[in-house]
Design a binder for these strands. Sequence first.
DNA 1: ATAGGGTTAG
Length: 961
Amino acid sequence: MLNKLNSLHLRINRQILFPASSLIFSNSTVSAAKLDSHEPTVITTSISPIDPNPSDPVRDIVADLKNLGFRRFIGENYVRDFDDLRLNESQVDRIFDCLRTESPVVAVQLFHWLRSEYGFKHSRYSSFVVSHVLASKKRFKELRFVLEQMLQEEGSDSAPSLCELLLNSFRDWGSNSEVCDMLAFVYSRSEMVHDALFVLAKMKDLNLKVSIQTYNSLLYNLRYTDIVWDLYHEIKVNATPQSEYTTSILIDGLCQQSRVQNAVLFLQETAGEEFGPSVVSFNTIMSRCCKLGFAEAAKALVCMMLKYGLHPDAYSYNILIHGLCVAGSMEEALEFTNDMQKHGVKPDTLTYHILAKGFHLLGQMTGAWEIIQKMLVKGLNPDLVTYTALICGHCQIGNIEEGLRLREEMLSQGIPLNAISYSVLLSCLCKRGQVDEALRLFYEMETAGLNADLVTYSILIHGLCKQEKVQKAIQLYDEMCSKKIYPNSFTLSAILLGLCENEMMSEARMYFDTLTMCDLTQDIILYNIMIDGYVKVGNIGEALQLYNQIIEKRITPSIVTFNSLIYGLCKNGMVAEARRWLLENIMLHGLEPSTVTYTILMNAYCEEGNMHCLFKLLEEMRAKAIGPSHITYTVVIKGLCKQWKLQEAIRLLEDMYAEGLTPDQITYNTIIQCFCKAKDIKTAFQLHEEMLLHKLEPTPVTYNILINGLCLYGDLKDADNLLFSLQKSDISLTKVAYTTIIKAHCVKGDVNKAVVYFRHMVEKGFEISIRDYSSVINRLCKRCLISEAKSFFRMMLLDGYRPDQHICEVICNAVYQGGDISSMFELAAGMIKSGLVPDKFMRKKGNSAATKFSMNVFCVLFYSLRRSSTSPLLQLRPLLPRPCCNAAASSSLNIIIVFINFSLLCLVLTLIIGNFKTTLIHHTLMCNSVVLFHLKTRRLVALWQRKTPNSIFRNSCAERW
DNA sequence: ATAGGGTTAG
């Protein structure tokens, strides 16, 4: 009962009395002094002996600690007493000073206890006292901890004052050398290298021994500088016994600076020493070689290792296998995996991950899958990286659902995702255009306490730019910078790419020019994106200009630069020119054409229908051992389809699987479309089944193709059923699926069904354009379903769409044909109100109803312009045949009338102008003519006739009129 | 203190 009360009291007591550590002491001069002064505080401590006077609290505490021992001292009663005391810093220092000789163990215990229980900040003196105690007992781990805590509080540039204290007050203490050494070590480990070097210099003055651990740590921190070689010299001179790490740290330093050759030479120099060439050192050099792309050199190093009697370990093999995989030499990588096993080194999860990545890089997803499966069969546990690889595999083929399912599985297995695994999912969502989903996942990731890194931000910024959500992208960009994550060429390129993909070329160029001004465009990638952007919008001139800029700036173009230019040339129909570029410029720059280069050219030949050249290039690729990708094969399949070699196309598809290349959705879409065109709907659907079997999620385009196939060559009812079941399964579709089926029903004359689907399309939230209405109206008009067309037109107006030029012309034409003149005028008036002009008909030849009509509309138009505008000619100019314009420009006319049919003209003019004297114009002159009037005098000024030019006006006659 | 996964040009 008493104990319980006491402990309760203690808890309350502590809460009340010791919310902060400084409360223990009445005097906290040290911390105050530190805050006020910029100079490090130098304390010269003189410890006074214990006062025999019984009122000295230190005396009692020390006596109790010694007599009772620490355990009993911290029993509740004493603690209470201790709590109630107010001790100043020098009193505590005295306690430690007294204890260290008589009860050193208790001194250490008290030291820790005060800090852990009260968060007490010890003085430098006490810390050093305890440090010496620990050093003398060889409790180095604790010593390191004490000094670490001390340096955390002292910060950098504290070495001079700490050394002074240490060397003044502790010079003769037995463990000074160890404490000094540990101090230097901890400074170095805390990345306060200057302080560490200061301590080292002092030690040198006093002839104190520096341990190899301290040297090693300093060597590591200074590995990019030449100071390391001074330090290394010092180690040699002092005959400090080295450790196995010393040489490997130096080797690592050289490697980090890409001085691989120096590293090898240095390693050879250390041969014969106790810690000469080691497996770790070799691994370090091999790793660097591979990173620099010299997998061959890494292989040679393995031989060198064996010569030194060293055996490659799992690291060595994994490094080498990784190097080979990145270099694309999968065969050799697999050979070394076997070799590894033969030498008794078991491939581990890392080995499998490396191999999977290798296949992945080559686009051989099947190979990657098989490797991961093999790993799981071998009983190796999937870890975060394995899962990431699996998620990546699913995401690659667009199966985000499976990716998200795996995420759930990971969480249930207690494997939390990191920024990388989230990035894979985010990237997949962005690629599918689900940026909002991606943002949601991103916030979820942040809520889970994961920090987005540069890559994560780059993915999102790219996704947002691509969707024209530039504002949000900029917001994220600012957020990223505020987190001190600075953009690299990836981030810059994400923005640039986003702008280019939106065909916002002028904005992209502005951004690019800004980067150039800041000298940030040394990176060829940024140039490549710009060039590619220009090429895609067909501006090959601007692209070539940028290429010249690259050459002027002496930036080395990459194969991608050429690929884009070749694409541009091909797109402009300059295939032969493109082929020449391939042969001349690429070779000139010492570059090798890539799979992409060949694929672009092959595609161009395919478009031209030049299968001969296409297959010649395929052979050339094979001869050069440039592996075709799944895209290359897709192009070949497209070519075969064009030639109606359907069976060969199917065979090639099978070959792809056999070669480990995974056909993607576009491959299937190509071949399915071909079978649809060949009216073999059955096989088309079989191929669709095959896609599902290979876990390839059909794209909305796949369904567009199938629906279109059924509409054109199959039963429209089947198309209805397919669309219905797709809608029911909530499979994502594009607008095209709807417009296709609407078109089919219009053609068949089933307006009701067309309207129903049109309503579906609107309800699904697709952006409906005026074109969607006009194409339906157009089709209905073509089938002379005038009243249906009119009701559709009304529906459009009700939906809030303003009719455009084209739709007016179509509907006007239709009502005119139906003889509904009043509707026609109604529409014409509506058009003029909307500022529309019947411009296309003016240029149409022939005496079609449309032309007749348009002439009349033109009159109406002209009239309203005359009333509203001071210069009708200026506005009418673009509508008139060229000679008419010239005449109008040269004289100060302010009226033109263009017409063909006299009776209609009279009608219109009478309707509009009322008292217009039609008799001024002779009937016979009016057919197929354009007449120019002067408004005020109402005199005929000029006339153009189509068939037989009137002799009076022959001189003004134009070629076409 | 040496090895693995994600973003970018067709």
